[in-house]
Design a protein around this nucleic acid. Structure first.
Lengths: 216, 216
DNA sequence: TTATAATTTTAGGCGAGTCTAAAAAAATTA
DNA sequence: TAATTTTTTTAGACTCGCCTAAAATTATAA
């Protein structure tokens, strides 16, 4: 078994690996709100356990074993988030910190039964895919609204920003997971996007459009 | 907030306090599978935080504040056990270790919503009462089967032994929470108890009779 | 290409929580 | 009551995960 700190490092490295081949010490330190020297220590420990590939000054990547552990943590996190929203009726912006604690509960049997109890969901409340018990994750090509051509229609299926203010804004605008939207026009001046949803027009900023992901 | 170790000490002291005024260092060490010297260190730390009363060589007791924390941990533990049995269909002897981890999840709001989700249960799967959110616990006078007079009838409402082999034995004999039993006779020779349940006769040993608690 | 800046690692230390071994206090027995 | 045993505390040390400060390495700019 891995310690709490080890699990948090693996999760951070996994997350950062999605947008970079080799993750740097400083990136990990920023992600975990810790110091680079602490990261160096821990990364060597994880390398000793064969969970990451590491060479001095060269950055870090997950090994197959490390990735499996990380995907398991992600699975637990997202299943608990799903539980919190669907069964305990929390809002999607309220569940992250709780799931952050719950993801470290170790029983595999527990998580498999939770999965069954929830009806084997494929996505968490933010639209992120839930890995299965073998760590398989459904690769789904979602596009930010800002990247599609005018007159394209799609279903909101994920967000690129998980912070509370952003999620609260989306909720207020009813721009939630599952909603169908049509991109009408992208204004050249500042990339404001004009959408149609529920037969009404709506304008959103470039930043917001970058962080709403749709399936076409 | 208290650390994981602190919470575990408080819970252990609470448990031992049920059968002793002042809890000894050695008792706590045995309960937590640690060494007396470690207990002394931690107990001083808890005394500094005003969670226990402590004087060198005199044993330990919980303060009001410490008891409140302990009851909260017990509440969380028992609610999660209830969830695991009722919703995820675990057996009553399987849930202790999982709940041991889950009880440390800190959100009060989470536990209150879990409580509501479960329909405000008053007892966990072993018949132990679940404290409410203010730490009030329904005092219920349960009696071991071994301590009631012949021809008394009652409902099995708790167990005095939470170990897996004992719980599995009870399950096999269908001596589970909620079952009505009538004590027919206690044999003088070795205190074997003869019961009637579901219109059938059943014999149990003194040790078993000591650890089945009934409400009359 | 050399100087400067940024990043990463090393060295040494700290607090939490644990341990062993020895000393101190309390309880028990003769 | 004195001697012995048991319990508890103290002293000192260890690991984990973190820190700061300084050194080493790599990246960038002149």
């Amino acid at each position: 078994m891995n310690t709490l700190a080890e699990e948090n490092y693996l999760k951070a490295i996994y997350k950062l690996s999605l947008t970079a081949r080799n993750v740097s010490t400083n990136q990990i330190a920023a992600e975990l709100a810790t110091k680079a020297s602490s990261v160096t220590d821990m990364v060597r420990k994880l390398a000793d356990k064969a969970l990451v590939n590491y060479a001095r000054y060269q950055g870090v990547s997950l090994t197959k074993a490390g990735e499996k552990v990380a995907l398991n943590i992600v699975r637990r996190h997202r299943l608990w988030e799903h539980f919190l929203v669907e069964k305990l009726h929390f809002k999607w912006h309220e569940v992250h910190d709780m799931a952050e604690e719950m993801e470290h509960i170790s029983s595999t049997e527990l998580i498999n039964r939770l999965d069954a109890f929830m009806g084997h969901p494929t996505r968490d409340p933010h639209g992120d895919p839930i890995p299965d018990c073998d760590g398989n994750i459904k690769a789904t090509a979602l596009k930010p609204i800002s990247a599609v051509k005018p007159n394209t229609s799609g279903v909101i299926s994920g967000v690129g920003d998980h912070t509370t203010p952003f999620l609260q804004y989306l909720e207020q605008q009813k721009l939630t997971i599952g909603k169908r939207v049509t991109i009408k026009e992208i204004i050249g001046y500042d990339n404001t996007v004009i959408l149609e949803m529920d037969n009404k027009q709506l304008q959103i900023s470039r930043d917001v459009a970058n962080n709403i992901l749709i399936a076409i």
